[in-house]
């Protein structure tokens, strides 16, 4: 014999209501839950009471939680504030996971500076990469020193050419940060004027004649680009 919702004894329906309202004492609650797993008709009663009572939700006013609650939630769930959306959007990220960049950033800093207490200065990173990954640089901005430290992890300048680094603020002309040396690591000072808007900067590397662009603007092909993001 099948048991449809209509065959439910009245008592079970009320028990389901008490269950939904959290009115059962712990022993009753446990007994009810044990039955629930076995009896679909009882589960349907719970669903029905949940829906019936949900009409009361409409009368509850919305209250916006403080923004810090969301940050805290994401830290609890994911271990860090959610800052990944840029990278996901940029689509530059397939080759390097955030974890490996964090590790690389850590080592880039380690290799460039003597051990010292890490200042709580803002840390920003950028992966400046060619679409085909033929040229790739990792940039870490050290707020305490006002420097961008660079590590080239793939590619280099063509024969008889140099690589020049540019910082581009929104709706502004590129500002040269200098010609990159042959070494795979280097550090350049970020002009004071660009530091405030750091998080909105895009870094780019162009192909230039020896000595760098003669005009003050990129003259050769832009080989690699990357936006700056807080670490």
């Amino acid at each position: 014999m099948t048991t449809g919702p209509d065959d439910i004894p009245q008592d079970d329906s009320l028990l389901a209501a008490e269950y939904v309202l959290r009115l059962l004492d712990p022993a009753e609650d446990a007994a009810f839950r044990a039955r629930l797993a076995q009896e679909p008709a009882l589960a349907a009663e719970v669903t029905a009471w949940t829906a019936r009572l949900s009409g009361l939700d409409a009368g509850v006013a919305e209250v916006a939680p403080r923004p810090a609650v969301k940050t805290g939630l994401e830290r609890r769930l994911f271990g860090q504030p959610q800052r990944l959306s840029f990278w996901q959007r940029a689509g530059l990220w397939q080759a390097v996971s955030l974890a490996s960049v964090a590790v690389a950033a850590f080592f880039a800093l380690q290799s460039l500076q003597p051990p010292q207490p890490i200042a709580p200065a803002p840390l920003f990173v950028s992966e400046i990469a060619a679409e085909d990954q033929s040229l790739r640089l990792l940039a870490v901005y050290d707020g305490a020193a006002g420097e961008v430290r660079l590590t080239r992890t793939a590619g280099g300048a063509a024969e008889g050419r140099v690589l020049q680094l540019w910082a581009i603020a929104p709706e502004a002309a590129p500002v040269s940060l200098g010609v990159l040396p042959q070494d795979s690591t280097t550090a350049v000072t970020l002009p004071e004027a660009l530091r405030a808007g750091l998080a909105d900067l895009v870094l780019a590397v162009s192909d230039e004649p020896p000595g760098g662009s003669p005009t003050g603007a990129p003259t050769g092909a832009v080989l690699a680009v990357g936006a700056v993001s807080p670490l």
Partner: peptide
Amino acid sequence: LVSSTPTPEQSAVAAGEARRIT
């Protein structure tokens, strides 16, 4: 939360009831 799957009919009835509770 139980994972019962009510028929669409049951869901519609439940939704109609929700409005009546007040």
